[in-house]
Design a protein around this nucleic acid. Structure first.
Lengths: 170, 170
DNA sequence: CCAACATTCTTAGATATATAAGTTTATTTG
DNA sequence: CAAATAAACTTATATATCTAAGAATGTTGG
């Protein structure tokens, strides 16, 4: 009877309703991110798709034939992350990896019929999570929040790049 | 000279500046969360502290003597996460785990001098990340964003609890 | 044209997190 | 008070992510 999850829920809420000091934005973003992932994950699990695989399906539903490298950039993750996910997705017969035009370096990714068919099933689940998460938030506040997040993403991308330079990673 | 990180940076930026459809809030929160973690992590690494350990240090700097269970709730993570982190932190001599009052079940967590001394070193790093991330964002927009995130956290905590009930996890 | 460089994929290993299940200890209740 | 239940910690295992480094393949400039 949801004893654990009630406790869990309450602790998150108590936590944030107690005091939200000036510099806790990072903390809130992290909590929200974890909860969003959990909500989506539990919905996807009913269809045998993991959260990580869904990220790549989303992209492939729009554009097939991207290379692993291009998929990494599009998804905003590093290549080993993409590699691992795609290998598993290939094993699950969601995608195929093919060399094109005699180029033996680049691997292009294509959906299988199974992977393609999941679009209509899974897309509403993600929309549902967003709908649930943003219930009661005005359109104006959503826009402001999106703009703030976009600014943060910009600022942090620059910060991380600067750090890489300083520390001499190529 | 930061070729990779430039590429990475650009891809994140291009990605978000291209098109931000209506239902992409979850996606943006996730990206922001990953970048925030990365920025903080690179700062903490200079002091031999991992991102995961920092979460618990923050709590302990305010209140020592919490049990592992209480620390889990405070940090908003599950107990195995806390357990693993605390074992490592004990090995690194940041904390001590002690039974109190003859209770052999509960384990109370205390900072070592070393753990306590890190407060003044690490706190400015987290503040710096927040400062960098929010550069150029007005105070009004920060407040709106915090409120939106808080609403999302509330909504999702309820959603996840409901899911647990439906699926019969206790 | 070939040697140096760059790109792409892959492997290895680490961190942060989760769920499920097991063990030990405390509490409650018939 | 002893058996049942609950709480707290622990173990095992899985997922999502990262960095660092290696291997294979293309590209380019002397």
């Amino acid at each position: 009877m949801a004893i654990n999850s009630s406790r869990e829920t309450q602790s998150v809420l108590q936590h944030w309703h107690r005091d939200v000091p000036n510099d806790r934005m990072a903390h809130m973003v992290r909590d929200a991110s974890r909860l969003l992932a959990k909500s989506l994950q539990s919905r996807l699990a009913n269809h045998g798709v993991s959260f990580g695989h869904w990220s790549f399906l989303r992209i492939l539903w729009v554009t097939e034939g991207l290379t692993q490298r291009e998929l990494s950039e599009e998804a905003g993750v590093m290549e080993p992350t993409t590699f691992t996910a795609l290998k598993a997705m290939e094993a699950n017969q969601l995608i195929e990896r093919r060399h094109l035009n005699g180029n033996r370096r680049k691997l292009h990714i294509f959906l299988t019929d199974k992977g393609r068919a999941l679009k209509d099933v899974l897309t509403p689940l993600a929309e549902d999570v967003n709908r649930v998460a943003l219930a009661g938030v005005s359109e104006a506040d959503r826009t402001t929040t999106r703009n703030t997040l976009l600014a943060m993403i910009d600022n942090l991308a620059i910060d991380n790049a600067a750090d890489s330079e300083v520390n001499g990673h190529e």
